[in-house]
Simulated assay, not measured.
Amino acid sequence: MAPPLRLHAVAFISPLNHPILIRSFSQVKGDELKYHYIAHTSLDVIEERIASSNKSTECYLGFLYAMEDSAVYGYITPLKVKIVLALALSDSVIRDADITMIFRAFYNAYYQSLANPFLRLDAPQDSITDHSALLSQGSSKWKGFRRRVDDVARAVGAVVTTDERD
Rank of each mutant, 00 (worst) to 15 (best):
S90T: 14
V72L: 04
H40I: 01
C59N: 09
M67W: 04
I50T: 12
V84M: 07
A39S: 02
S56H: 09
H18N: 15
E68H: 09
A123Q: 12
E47R: 13
L5S: 06
Y73C: 06
S90H: 10
Y110G: 11
Y111N: 13
F63D: 12
P78R: 01
L79I: 14
K82D: 01
V159R: 00
F118P: 14
T161L: 08
I94K: 08
G74T: 03
L121W: 12
S90W: 07
T162E: 13
V45Y: 12
D130G: 02
R95K: 11
E47W: 09
V93L: 15
S139T: 10
R147G: 15
E164D: 09
D166V: 07
A2R: 00
Y75V: 10
Q125I: 15
Q27P: 12
D122L: 15
E58G: 11
K82T: 02
A39Q: 00
L119G: 06
L33R: 01
P117Q: 04
C59Y: 03
V159C: 04
A11M: 03
A115P: 00
V160I: 04
Y60N: 05
N54V: 14
D150I: 04
T77D: 05
Q137E: 13
V10I: 06
F118V: 14
V84I: 10
K80A: 15
G62F: 09
L85H: 01
V10K: 00
L7Q: 04
E47I: 11
L5M: 09
K141E: 15
Q112F: 13
S113Y: 01
K141P: 08
A123F: 12
I13F: 07
V160Y: 06
E32W: 02
A155M: 08
L134S: 06
Y37R: 08
A123N: 10
A133V: 15
A123V: 14
I46A: 03
R147Q: 14
E48Y: 11
D122Q: 15
G138C: 14
A115S: 11
V156C: 07
S132P: 08
I13T: 11
M67T: 08
P3F: 11
V152N: 02
L33C: 05
L5W: 08
F118T: 15
H131G: 13
I46G: 05
H8T: 05
Q125P: 13
R23D: 01
A51P: 10
L85K: 01
